[in-house]
Amino acid sequence: MQNSVLIEIKNRVALLTLNRPEKLNALNYLTNDRLLELLDQIENNDDIGAVILTGAGDRAFSAGGDIHEFTASIKEGVDVAVREFCKRGQTMTARLESYPKPILAAVNGIAFGGGCEITEAVHLAVASDQAEFAKPEINIGIPPTFGGTQRLPRLAGRKRALELLLTGDRFSAQRAYELGLVNKVVPHDKLLPAAFELAERILRHSPLAASRIISAVTRGINTTIEEGLLIEREQFARMAATQDVLEGLDAWIARRAPIYQGA
C-alpha cells in the first residue's frame, strides 16, 4: 500500500504520484485508500501549501478503476459493489474537490474513467500534449461511478458531456482544454515544470485566503446565486478575522511583499 502512491515534497508542494505503471496506474482499492491517507497527512502539515497529482511512467495518468478488482466486488452483489467500489471512489473525488489546499493534476498520459474523474474533481489541471481522455464506462455496461455523470456536465455543459458519456469516445488534451477540463496543455517534457510553476504562483498568496476561495467555489457552484453569495460572505467573515488580512492590507499600503503565516 505504501508504494501505490509516492510522495515527494519540494518547495512547499507535495508531489503525489499514482504508482502502478504496469497497470496504467489503475485505481485499485489500496491506491484509493493510500491517496486519502496521504491527503489527510498533508492537510495537517503547515509546511505544505499545495498538491500536484500525477501518474508514474510515460503512458498513463490513470486508466481508471481496476476492472479485475471491481468485477469481483460486483459478483459479490450490489451492496458490496456500491460500498467497496462506488462509494470509495466518490469519497476520494469529493475529498479532492473540497480539499482546503490547492490540488493540481499533471495529466501525463491517458486519463480514462476514474482518471478523468480525478481531473474533473481537482481544482486545477495541466495536461501533456500527449495526454488522452475518455469516459469509457459505457463500454463495460456501467455509468461513471466516481462523480463523472455530475462533474463533467457542470464543466463542459450537458450536451457535450452526454456525447462523451454515451459514446465512450476518446478525446485529446486540446479538446479537454476546450471543454474546461484542464487549464492548459503543454509539451510533454514541460508538464511537471508547468504544474509547479502554477502552484508557485498560488503559493505567493495567503494560504488561508486560498482555502476560503476553494470552499466558497466548491460549496457555491451547486447552489442558487443567492445562496452562493451567502457562502461568499461567510468565507469573507472567516477571513476578515485573521492576521493574514491585516498583513495583506499593511503590505499593500507599504508597497512591500506580504509575509503570510505558513507561506
Rank of each mutant, 00 (worst) to 15 (best):
F171D: 06
A156R: 04
T17I: 12
T242I: 01
V13Q: 02
R201Q: 14
A72E: 15
L230C: 04
E43R: 14
I118P: 03
G262Y: 10
P136Y: 10
L16R: 04
L16F: 01
P102K: 06
A63V: 12
N25E: 06
P21A: 04
I142Y: 11
A121T: 01
G49V: 02
L38P: 11
S98R: 15
R160K: 15
E200Q: 02
Y177Q: 14
D66W: 00
K101D: 05
A199R: 01
K184Q: 13
A209R: 08
P187F: 02
I213M: 14
E76H: 10
L165W: 11
V182G: 01
I231C: 05
H188Q: 07
G180L: 09
G55R: 02
I253T: 06
A240F: 12
D46C: 03
N25M: 00
W252D: 05
M239N: 11
I74D: 05
G65A: 15
K101M: 10
L30G: 07
E97H: 09
A26Y: 00
T91N: 13
I225S: 10
I48Q: 04
A257Q: 14
Q243A: 09
P144S: 13
K159Q: 13
A161T: 09
A251I: 03
P143W: 05
I142G: 09
F85I: 05
L27W: 08
M239D: 10
L27R: 10
Y29V: 04
D169M: 13
L155N: 06
G248M: 09
R219C: 09
A210P: 02
L229E: 14
G65W: 15
L16A: 03
R233Y: 11
R154I: 05
T91Q: 13
H205M: 07
I48K: 06
